[in-house]
């Protein structure tokens, strides 16, 4: 058996635009292929509107694709049955942006962490449940766990809530965690702690997919980076490589936009304007209207994602 946890093949996800008689579709994910090796965490980077969250939700089986395949440990995620489904739902956990946004204000931390376990009827006795919940809280450094378990979610700071969200997934003993913007809503001073907790989990064998618009966070967290723009992967490679030598003009723009703690160095905005609607994606290269390097060919011909070196792919006519 190979070491792939995920093998995504030519995945396409369209959403029908609401409205009677509408024949329009949002091209949220459009021909994405990606494989994820066990223990090699991947950062999926791009602006909001690039399809990252849809890709994540499709990987956990929440959204059905229009075409293409999602294989998890060799099995098609949309053709699982019975026990396989339960196992998949335990092994892969997705943590959403602001996960407790609409939570019942009476919910305790214990309830929140135990929720998934109860739903999948994973733990039997009260002791087992306690152990799973306290263990998970301990891992995310909400100590003493017995104290934190009693608190209401609504009484916690943003950073603490995010840790509860991680604990809730951990209680399921997953193999893969998919995180949607895990730190961008948090105060800069606590982001590092969440990242550290997750980095420790990586050393314990968990594989992460981190979805974010902030390439700086994934540079220090994930082993590889996939850059997404309007439903397509435009660049792929090891984090180190992609950040040190970005090949696609969009990746270059993402990197130039990251501020650094040095007043002598200013951010640059290399991409003009804003991401267009995914209902009518631009012809040719989807990035061409915003690209500082665009030529005629970019308007008419779509560049394929091609290998430029080992484990290094880019979709640009001029890279």
């Amino acid at each position: 058996m190979d070491n792939k946890v995920y093998d995504v093949k030519d995945l396409t996800v369209y959403f029908k635009v609401k409205g009677r008689g509408s024949k329009l579709f949002v091209h949220a994910v459009d021909g994405v292929s990606l494989s994820v090796e066990r223990g090699v965490s991947v950062g999926i980077v791009g602006e909001s509107g690039s399809g990252k969250t849809t890709l994540g939700k499709t990987l956990v089986g929440l959204i059905k694709p229009k075409s293409g395949e999602v294989l998890f440990e060799g099995r098609n995620v949309f053709k699982l049955r019975g026990a396989e489904t339960a196992e998949f739902r335990r092994k892969v956990q997705m943590i959403y942006q602001d996960p407790f946004d609409a939570i019942d204000p009476l919910f305790s931390v214990y309830d929140a962490v135990a929720e998934g376990l109860r739903a999948l009827k994973i733990t039997g006795s009260r002791e087992e449940m306690d152990q799973a919940v306290y263990g998970a809280l301990q891992t995310v450094r909400l100590t003493p766990p017995e104290e934190y378990a009693k608190r209401r979610i609504t009484s916690l700071s943003g950073g603490q809530r995010q840790r509860v969200a991680v604990a809730r997934s951990l209680a399921m003993e997953p193999e893969v965690l998919i995180l949607d913007e895990p730190v961008s809503m948090l105060d800069a001073s606590v982001r590092g702690e969440i990242i550290k907790i997750m980095a420790d989990l990586k050393t314990r064998g968990k594989t992460f997919l981190m979805i974010t618009h902030d390439v700086a966070t994934v540079k220090f967290f994930a082993e590889s980076i996939a850059v997404m723009y309007l439903g397509k992967i435009v660049e792929l490679g090891s984090s180190e490589d992609v950040v040190a030598h970005p090949l696609h003009p969009y990746t270059q723009a993402l990197i130039a936009a990251v501020p650094v703690p040095d007043p002598e160095v200013k951010v640059k905005s290399l991409a003009k304007g804003e991401i267009p609607s995914a209902i009518f994606p631009p012809s040719g290269c989807r990035f061409h209207p915003r690209c500082p390097l665009a030529q005629e060919i970019c308007k008419t011909e779509e560049p394929a994602l091609r290998a430029v070196a080992k484990n290094r792919y880019v979709a640009c006519h001029f890279a």
Binding site: S189, R191, I195, K219, F220, I255, P261, V265
Partner: peptide, 22 residues
């Protein structure tokens, strides 16, 4: 000093830290 160490600096290779506690 803690705030400055809590933010990622893309030019460096070492990761960023945090200020523990509240």
């Amino acid at each position: 000093q803690g705030l400055l160490k809590s933010v990622p600096d893309m030019r460096r290779s070492e990761s960023f830290g945090y200020i523990a506690g509240l």
